[in-house]
């Protein structure tokens, strides 16, 4: 009986938002409230709306999102820790008319893979690099990342990160923006509906620029890690605004006119 009522009600309505077909039906393995799967979904919405699924190849990283290929229903390669942009380079060079994106965490992109990151951007590889910055190593259980904030507690900075032992949080997005090979460098987030809308625009633009062979597009997504940060999802988003944004302010860092 319930079903009939709902069906009748829905009859009068139109669907304005649904999970995109470009996501598989597989349940996300992420912790409740984790930003990773929002970013996955937004990338896949853009792929669906742009109608480029048949031309899109993604590169999944080592990190919490190592299983990204279980969710994003496009051809994908899983890369060694830090090497996603090199793998993406290999793909793009032999298939220059495809849309290629890498998806990397802060440990992946800004620690072990720094050389690949800098040089991929410096060559201006025509790919999109999506960089999910949650200021921590999620997958391995919450160790300090290059982007961990000063004073922030992690399992390898239990008293809080200090400059004396661990140096400064690495603003790698600002670094790659300095390189002439990057065309569009922006910092986004997914903590509010509007932030998600902005991210979607940024991804859409990036694929457009990729089509026009403009160079590397680089999107940092300041995200949360409720488990690693030991907070509820709602708290983690508030913490992100209060603590991450001052150092990692959202907005375009390098944008074409």
């Amino acid at each position: 009986m319930g079903q009939d009522v709902v069906d009748a009600a829905l009859e009068q309505m139109e669907c304005v938002y649904a999970r995109p077909d470009t996501l598989t039906d597989t349940r996300f393995h992420y912790c409740p409230g984790c930003g990773h799967s929002v970013v996955h979904r937004v990338i896949m919405e853009v792929v669906q709306e742009a109608g480029i699924r048949e031309q899109t190849i993604g590169v999944a990283p080592v990190g919490c999102s190592v299983f990204a290929y279980n969710y994003m229903d496009v051809d994908m390669q899983e890369a060694a820790h830090g090497r996603a942009s090199a793998v993406a380079t290999g793909i793009k060079r032999v298939l220059p008319d495809r849309f290629v994106f890498s998806y990397q965490g802060d440990g992946d992109l800004a620690a072990i893979g720094t050389a690949e990151t800098i040089h991929t951007c410096n060559r201006g590889e025509n790919i999109l690099m999506v960089f999910v910055n949650n200021a921590i190593y999620g997958m391995t259980g919450g160790q300090m990342a290059p982007t961990t904030l000063l004073g922030m507690k992690t399992s390898t900075s239990p008293a809080g990160r200090t400059v004396e032992t661990a140096g400064f949080p690495l603003k790698i997005t600002e670094m790659v923006a300095m390189l002439p090979g990057t065309y569009y460098v922006t910092r986004q987030s997914v903590h509010t509906p509007n932030a998600v809308r902005q991210l979607k625009k940024a991804i859409t633009k990036s694929f457009q620029y990729q089509k026009e062979r403009k160079g590397t597009c680089f999107i940092e997504v300041v995200s949360n890690c409720p488990s690693g940060w030991k907070m509820t999802p709602v708290q983690s988003n508030a913490w992100l605004v209060e603590n991450m944004f001052p150092l990692y302010p959202p907005g375009d860092i390098k944008a074409p006119k």
Partner: peptide
Amino acid sequence: IVLQAESEVAAINMIYGAAGA
């Protein structure tokens, strides 16, 4: 297609990507 990579680490991972493609 010939690319001088930034290191052998990058080169072998480019091989991975291109072979996988």
